[in-house]
Simulated scan of single mutants.
Amino acid sequence: MMQKGIQNLALKQVLGFPLQDCRDYRFIREELGLVRSIRGIQDVKDFISIIGQPYRLTEGRVVCIRSGQIRLCVNLIERVLCAGQLVVASSGTLFEVVEISSDCDFCMLAFANRLMEEERPVGLLKTYLQGRLFLSLALTAEEEERLQKIFVLLWEVLHDEPFARETVTGVISVLFHQIDYFRKQGLSEEQPKRTRQEDVFEHFIDLINRYALSERNVSFYAGRLFLSPRYLSTLVRQVSHRTVMDWVNEAVVQEARLLLRHTDKPVYQIADELHFPNPSFFCRFFRRMTGKTPYGYRKEQ
């Protein structure tokens, strides 16, 4: 049976559907969408597959689960999100909804990175804009109530005429500051402060997420971080007990798994998209990393 492959999910795409008028539950523009309840996407399922179809997010998401639960795969890792959980996922995240309980409800914010280009992002918002963040927090009743108030404020501001762009981006910044505060509150007070090496390593991982498919040279990442290749190699090994190339190869093999599992593209095309010199080189690499050939892995799936 032919698979549909990995599809992009974008606000612009949803705007192109002949949807019903649903002003009470959703607000959508090309750069931003806010859904107040699952009722706001009920008619969307007539145009896209909600269950069992892998998507790559064109815009990131902030989702607050109000009731029920959602079972999904995020970058091939299965997760169960329950009532009282908050999820933040950057653009580029690959997800597939496996199951949604009948009593599930949530509110969801989606926005393009370019919406925040006038802001000076710090903390969690900065990490979000750098790509492929997936954060899940269990909220207390008080924390959930406070976030709901921010969602309500954002909903009201979105309906101002004319569109109050600066106010909207300001409320989104407040939302991320509040989420970051809750995240830090959940950390142990005895946890030591982050070192400079850990900060550099975090920036290194951001670069891996963005460039690993095309850049596989230590010098490239060292140059982006204004470090010598030798120092970067030493730092990465000290912080993670792994090498720079271990991280690069892991990102590449994850993308290869996604393409083999969710598309019918021939192996030679996947090898080309992942910038391998030829299919044989790709097959040897994949087998070395996974213990299986690309054909064997695809057959298992």
Rank of each mutant, 00 (worst) to 15 (best):
A112C: 05
T290H: 05
C82D: 14
S90H: 03
F27W: 07
F134D: 11
L213R: 03
M116Y: 00
Q148C: 13
G5N: 08
C107N: 07
V87C: 11
R39A: 14
H159D: 08
I100Q: 10
L187C: 12
T290F: 07
L139I: 09
M289R: 14
E255Q: 11
D246T: 08
P18W: 05
G40L: 01
Q69S: 15
F201L: 07
L260Y: 03
F17G: 10
G170K: 05
A89M: 13
E202M: 12
M1V: 13
P18T: 06
R230S: 15
S228P: 07
R165N: 07
C64K: 06
I179L: 08
L154P: 01
F163E: 10
V171Q: 01
G186K: 08
L147I: 06
L129T: 03
F276D: 00
E166H: 08
D272Q: 13
Q301Y: 10
Y221M: 03
L76I: 04
T93P: 05
P277F: 00
F111D: 02
F106R: 04
P294L: 05
R261S: 11
R39W: 10
F201H: 06
S67W: 00
M2Y: 12
I6S: 10
M245V: 09
L213F: 09
L158C: 10
L147V: 08
A271Y: 00
L232C: 01
V248E: 00
K4Y: 13
S280D: 13
I270D: 00
S37A: 06
I65P: 01
L227K: 06
P18S: 10
K149E: 15
N75G: 10
V244A: 00
A251Q: 00
M245W: 05
S233C: 03
E166A: 11
G60C: 01
M2Q: 15
T263P: 08
V74D: 04
G186S: 05
L86E: 00
S233T: 11
Y268I: 09
G170S: 12
L94V: 15
D24C: 06
A110Q: 12
D103M: 05
R237Y: 14
T234R: 14
T167K: 15
Q197F: 12
E78T: 11
R26A: 06
V267S: 06
G92P: 07
L213M: 10
N217I: 11
L129W: 01
R216P: 02
K193G: 12
P162N: 02
L109N: 03
G92K: 03
F182P: 06
S90G: 12
N249F: 03
N113L: 01
L213K: 02
N278F: 02
G291P: 09
T290L: 08
L11Y: 07
R230N: 14
L258K: 11
E30F: 02
P266Q: 11
L207D: 07
D43Q: 05
L34C: 04
Y268P: 03
E250A: 14
